[in-house]
Computed example of a mutant assay.
Amino acid sequence: MSNNNDIEAIDLLGVRIHSLSMNELNEYLVESIRDNKKCTLANVNIHAMNLAYENAWFRDFLNESAINFCDGEGVRLGAKMKGKKIREKITYNRWIWSLGELSQRLGLTWYLLGATEKSISKAVATLRGKYPELKIVGYHNGFVDSDSLPLILSEIKEKSPNILCLGMGMPLQEKFLIDHSDKINYNIALTGGAVFDYVSGEFKMTPDIYYRLKLEWFYRFINDPKRLFKRYFVGIPIFFLRLLFIKSRSKS
């Protein structure tokens, strides 16, 4: 499993997306750490797909990542339109707890980077409260400037975490890895977006009913309409129009 060639992948708008379960993702992560690999496991949703379509550097980042797992129903539907199946949607606000339990059990070390100082501090306290033996070797908020950057890079290099979890939002977290990955030590880099805000309670966890109805995006929107209106009510139609355009062009 540590070879990503063994995992089914599809191409959607020029982005490679892997079809795997949460258990298989955990297995790949653990085996990669045991093999002392250095790689990125990236999440792909419609926002990521739109960024990749419009920015070649972002598309290259995703296609150079070891794994791109699907964390949005829209991407699964897009794959279905191409006659492909993505087996499972894996969202950080649920996966983080499975990963925390697994990391505590195996003694994996974490470094967390992202969110506000209030949110990241609360997230660390929550994780340590739920997993007392989880080894969080360092953390820092996501407001990185010329003064704090050298200290952050030095600490991550020194701590050499098994898991470097970034919660800076797209595309800042991806740009951080492109610019600085060669200066720091880690096994697995995760692009976690708003994960620390969910762990800390700053963002509300999606109720199960919305999750089952595949309406997580709508619940997020009604809780943060100003920030998410363009992403959802402009970004989602654009994504599907692009798919339909390419599909119609291939038939002509």
Results as ranks from 00 to 15, higher is better:
2 S>L: 13
11 D>Y: 06
12 L>P: 02
14 G>P: 04
17 I>V: 15
19 S>A: 14
29 L>W: 09
32 S>R: 14
33 I>T: 08
34 R>D: 07
34 R>S: 11
36 N>F: 09
39 C>G: 01
40 T>Y: 08
49 M>H: 03
53 Y>M: 07
54 E>W: 04
59 R>S: 12
61 F>E: 04
63 N>D: 05
66 A>R: 11
70 C>H: 05
71 D>P: 12
72 G>A: 11
74 G>W: 08
77 L>K: 13
78 G>I: 04
81 M>T: 01
81 M>I: 14
86 I>Q: 08
88 E>L: 11
95 W>D: 12
97 W>L: 05
98 S>Q: 13
101 E>K: 15
104 Q>H: 05
110 W>Q: 03
111 Y>L: 03
113 L>G: 02
114 G>P: 10
118 K>V: 12
121 S>Y: 04
123 A>S: 14
124 V>M: 04
125 A>R: 12
125 A>I: 05
128 R>L: 14
134 L>M: 14
134 L>A: 05
135 K>T: 00
136 I>D: 01
137 V>R: 08
138 G>F: 08
141 N>K: 05
142 G>W: 10
143 F>D: 03
149 L>T: 03
154 S>Y: 01
154 S>F: 06
164 L>R: 11
173 Q>K: 05
176 F>S: 02
182 D>C: 08
184 I>D: 04
184 I>P: 01
190 L>C: 06
190 L>V: 14
195 V>I: 15
205 M>H: 14
205 M>R: 13
206 T>G: 07
222 I>P: 00
223 N>Y: 11
225 P>G: 10
226 K>Y: 09
228 L>N: 07
229 F>A: 13
230 K>M: 06
237 P>K: 09
239 F>N: 00
241 L>G: 03
248 S>C: 08
248 S>A: 12
